[in-house]
Structure formats: C-alpha cells, structure tokens
C-alpha cells in the first residue's frame, strides 16, 4: 500500500510522464470525438474550389480535390491508435513468448527459435503483404494490424532474448534455480520483474513502431484501400504535388501527429522508468 502511494506520488510529479500522457490524451480525445465534429466525411468532395488553406469553414484546409483535411486527419488518427494498440500489442506478446523461451532456455531451443526469428526477420514482409494485397481486392485496417503484429515481433524477441541471456547468469537467478524453482516461475518472478521497465520500453517501441510501419506501408501504396490514415494522407499529398504547390496544410498535420504521438509515448516511457527505478530519480 505504501509502495503504491509512493509510485503515485512520484507519478504526479514526473513531468515527462505528465506531458507525455497529456499529449496522448489530447490526441486520443481528438480521435474519439473529432469525427463527430467534422462537418464532412473524409472522402467527400466538400470544397468546390479545390485546395484552400485553413479557414473557419475548413479548419485544416482542403486537399487538391476539395476534401476536408480536418475530417481526414481525425479519422486517420483513429486508425493510427488502432494500429498502434493492436499491432504493437500483438508484436510485444509474441516477442515476449519467444524471447523469454529462447533466452532463458538457451541450447537447442534457443537455436530453433533463433532460426525461426531469423527466418521471419529475413522474409521480406513487403512480399508477403504484396501477395495478400493481390489476393484481396480490398485491404482493411484490421488486416494491417494483424500483419504488422505478426511481422514486427522479431525485434522484440531479439532484445528480450539478449536481456534474458545476460540476466540468467546473474546470481539471483542461479539462486532461484538452485532452490528448484520451475523455469516458467523463474522467468515470471525473477527475470521479468527485473526487466519490467525494459519490457515497457519494448511495448512502447512496438506501439510506436507499428504506427511508423503503418505510415510507411500507407505511404508506398500498400495501406488499407477502404479507409483513411495519416500515412495515406501523406501519400496523397506527395502524389498530388502538395510540395511544389505549397499546400503545407495537407502534409504537415499527419506527420506532426505521428511524431507527437510516438514521441509522447517515448516520453511516458522514460517517466515510468524513473518512477519504477528509484535509482534513476536520484541522478
């Protein structure tokens, strides 16, 4: 009980955590209620005059076709959070299972899992998506999440394995082993808690990574074909000459939002890190 209070005490005073979660909350709120405030649907040709800078009628301006950038933006944000949560979550889960098993067990299991990780790592994820894309006439957002989660875990697995590897030779693990503890318990009780902040970092990296991967896929034209996303907004902006025509309102918001969300996640992570590790606070 005392510990929890202590955590809360420091959490409320940790600027990094507060700022980070503040930003996330703002964007989350925007993604939640924004679409209700948008006057137009993302793909409606709302403005008959085509591209126009932000105004009271079109808060974020309009695209080349006169589509409302604000509407695309808030709907795209929604897609971004979904991809981060589902894609990043799935990636972390798979990465933890494989990383712990390989790192703690070592030996032949490690080799097999390592080979498996390597294969998944070298299978060109783009190619797989390409095949999927060719089979399905329409790609959905959920499929993108699944795809990102199932291909992004090797990074997490690698990192967790390496960390487990060095932890398992530490004295306290040896001690636990000598006392006859089961491997699963050792991982859960001794190893995982000792790298908790590392795991949080991994999840946050996966969350952010999923958002960035989705943006990349969308940007090169392999994104969802029936939805809007921040990456697709950037693709359309570049494709339709927003740069030379100076339509900055088209490509600045989506990139800025991604940067802010992912950056805020990282900032939250450092904050949490400092809260959980008193040592870091003393520095």
């Amino acid at each position: 009980m005392k510990k929890r209070n202590e955590v809360l005490y420091f959490a409320l005073r940790n600027k990094k955590l507060l700022i980070g979660s503040g930003i996330i909350l703002i964007f989350l709120l925007l993604a939640w209620v924004g679409p209700a405030f948008a006057k137009y649907k993302p793909f409606d040709y709302a403005n008959p005059l085509g591209a126009e800078p932000p105004s009271t009628e079109y808060w974020f301006g309009t695209t080349f076709f006169g589509q409302d950038v604000f509407s695309q933006f808030v709907n795209g944000l929604r897609a971004t959070f979904i991809v981060g949560l589902l894609g990043g979550g799935l990636g972390t889960l798979v990465g933890m299972i494989i990383g712990f098993a390989a790192g703690y067990r070592g030996g032949i299991l490690d080799e097999i899992l390592n080979a498996f990780t390597n294969i998944v790592l070298v299978i060109p994820t783009l190619a797989v998506l390409l095949i999927i894309a060719a089979y399905l006439q329409v790609r959905s957002l959920l499929m993108e999440c699944l795809f990102i989660g199932l291909t992004a875990w090797p990074w997490a697995a690698r990192a967790i394995r390496a960390q487990t590897f060095s932890l398992r030779t530490r004295d306290f693990v040896d001690l636990a082993r000598l006392s006859g503890m089961k491997p699963y318990k050792i991982v859960r009780r001794e190893i995982a808690p000792n790298m908790m902040s590392y795991l949080v970092l991994v999840f946050i990296l996966q969350f952010g990574g999923a958002i960035l991967t989705a943006a990349t896929l969308d940007f090169i034209g392999l994104g969802p074909t029936n939805a809007i996303s921040l990456g697709l907004m950037m693709q359309y902006a570049v494709l339709w000459g927003a740069l030379p025509l100076g339509m900055w309102w088209w490509f600045v918001p989506p990139g800025l939002a991604i940067t802010a969300i992912v950056g805020a996640l990282y900032s939250m992570n450092v904050g949490l890190d400092e809260i959980f590790n008193p040592k870091l606070r003393e520095m």
Binding site: L212, A215, T216, G231, M234, L243, G255, T259, S267
Partner: peptide, 16 residues
Amino acid sequence: YVLTATPYMWLGILLA
C-alpha cells in the same frame, strides 16, 4: 525522442 518518433518520409518531405 522527437527525432526517433519522426516518420522517415515526413522528415524527408519537410526537408525537401
């Protein structure tokens, strides 16, 4: 954190 959170294409677009 801000730098590493920036999508490659967005920084590219901004610089360009």
